[in-house]
Simulated scan of single mutants.
Amino acid sequence: MAKVASVHPLDTSLTQVNQRLKAAKLGLQIERRGDRLNLRGTLPPRPGSPKLRPYQQRVPLKIAATKAGLKQCEQTAKIIAAQLLQNIFDWRDYLGPIAGLRMGGADLSSQIDAFEANFFAARSSETSAASLRTTWEKAYVPYLRKLHTTADRHPNLSLPEAIYATVQSTQANSRSRQICCTALAAFAEFLNLELPTDLKSFWGTYGTSQTQLRDLPSDEQILEVYDRLKNPRWKYVYGMMATYGLRNHEVFFCAPASGTGAKPSSDREIIVQETTKTGRHAVWPFYPEWVERFDLLNGELPRINTDLSTTTLQRVGQQVTTQFRRYEIPFSPYDLRHAWAVRTILMGLPDAVAAKMMGHSVQVHNRTYHRWMTHRDQQAAVQTALAKNKLSAPM
């Protein structure tokens, strides 16, 4: 027995609308699939398609099969037809998460929420959840909030105009300006929002070559500060950072290699855990003698919240910075890390090895730390090289 096609209450109206579209020669028709409406017509190949010429395809609008939905589909068909005529049709406007937002007329808050969801979903397989959360809260949230504030205060501005105004509200030639540009450019790209002027043009002169050289603590200064600290748990944090060049939060997420299943070359090797900013990596002490000097094999960490389901790497790290200020340490926690990096250079450790232990690229290592070698450091390196080789110049 032949199956009778189901009749939908909208079908009569749908036929009438399609007759109008056909009479206007728009090249598009509305189709109903269950309780959803889509468009169909000859369209350019989708992104990633091996085809080179336009062919019959469906635009997955997935609009509810109602009278209001039918009216919206008819209007969208006219817009797409105009885009095809002007050769500006872009599949990105009708595919992916942003398509639904545009069709639904989502406000800025909804767009930011969708951007956040996409940010985590797109990177979850390659970066730890804790690291992603830290990056999101530190590099995106402040500037998206600033954008929202700008848009609320100036409702007459278009979204591109609000983005430019937000960027220009940050300090020129600063790192915050650069991060703001990066965050809002990513947001605009997610929305498939065309910005007339590339945000990189607002970066200014900020960059590694313009950053102020640091006056890093000498080894003697590091020892002097350690000896005057009173709290044994924070002395342990300080010693670990000085000896292993760890980031603030990494002190709380590392362990001796012997206890992690790895095959350590010595009892001084440690493993920084996967949950940290740059993932799992091994680190060795420079100097090895400082392991005993600071009693690092027996030290205990401060009792702070490190449960990443209720806190973030950034908050853990901020507590280290707070304690440095409390104890009036005359340099920042990161200065210990930077001093460690320069120390490896002076001791002749290959840059690729040092960079891997620090959890970043060789390019970043060379661009950053080789610049910070002072005349004092250079003189020490020259003396070390001469003493090691003991070559005599020909007379």
Rank of each mutant, 00 (worst) to 15 (best):
A5F: 05
A5M: 05
L14T: 09
Q19W: 03
K22W: 05
T42Q: 10
P44D: 00
P47D: 00
S49I: 00
P50S: 03
Q56S: 15
Q56E: 10
K62W: 06
A64K: 10
K71C: 06
E74Q: 12
A82N: 03
Q86H: 13
F89V: 00
Y94A: 06
L108P: 01
E116N: 03
S125I: 04
S128M: 02
A139Q: 14
R145T: 12
D152W: 02
E161L: 07
T166S: 10
C180I: 04
T182Y: 12
F187L: 13
E189Y: 06
E194K: 08
W203H: 15
G207N: 13
T211I: 08
L216R: 08
D219L: 10
Y226W: 15
Y226V: 06
D227C: 06
A242S: 14
E250M: 04
E250C: 11
F253Q: 02
S258Y: 07
G259S: 10
S265H: 04
T275I: 13
A282Q: 14
V291Q: 08
R293C: 14
L297M: 11
D307Y: 10
L313W: 04
G317D: 03
Q323S: 06
P330K: 00
H338G: 04
K356F: 07
Y369W: 09
R376W: 01
D377W: 08
Q383G: 05
K388L: 11
K388A: 15
P394W: 00
